[in-house]
Design a binder for these strands. Structure first.
Lengths: 102, 102
DNA sequence: CAAATATATGTCATATATGACATATATCCA
DNA sequence: TGGATATATGTCATATATGACATATATTTG
């Protein structure tokens, strides 16, 4: 994990150690966070591929633009449940969704 | 979706329509729930393949046996985040985890 | 460039998930 | 069988996620 990624993680509310780089980020936590970031990226890619705005997505899932923005940013305050739901709401199949996480 | 599955869903706290079978369960909700159930099954399979008890898993993720049981039951009160975290805590790789969801 | 449109960030009150606990039920095995 | 071990179910106080809102900052378009 490079420094830019670490900065992005910290910016999104993840605890990635202060003095030392990320020794206190266990492998399993790292895997989880990286999968979640992949999911947030997948959601954004999917939305863009359909030429939809965050407001459009928000309407479909009865949420708000700000929450969609947070999903796409991989913010620590959003669950993967909401992200998966959003992708399905955009018409993606399970195969498609899972495929975007490989 | 057959009746047995519906019963299982309802038992786990999912709202799957009362009078009519499951007309009020939109395709995206169905996809989400089915993915989550696949994940709960994957977690259980993984645990059993390692010959661990729910208590063992609970210790590794600093949770409780009851919560692990709920994860494996696909209970509506548990997030996919916790399930993914658990699988990673059992040593599964992202490739492995994602592969179990295909 | 400026206006319009899109996205990001911060905060709140409320809803939901969490670990913990008690206890019920199932499964194992001597 | 019955005691031991494992899993399921229900509940609670607390922690965290949620939609909504305001508003800041980009990005597009004319």
């Amino acid at each position: 994990m490079n420094n830019a990624k670490k900065k992005r993680l910290e910016a999104n509310g993840w605890k990635v150690g202060s003095t030392d780089e990320f020794l206190n980020l266990s492998p399993e936590e790292a895997s989880y966070i990286e999968l979640k970031l992949a999911l947030s990226k997948a959601l954004q890619d999917l939305r863009k591929s359909k030429n939809l705005t965050q407001v459009d997505v928000a309407k479909r899932i009865k949420s708000s633009q700000s929450r969609v923005a947070k999903m796409e940013a991989g913010d620590s305050s959003v669950t993967m449940d909401l992200m998966f739901r959003s992708m399905f709401a955009l018409g993606a199949s399970r195969k498609k969704v899972v495929g975007m996480l490989v």
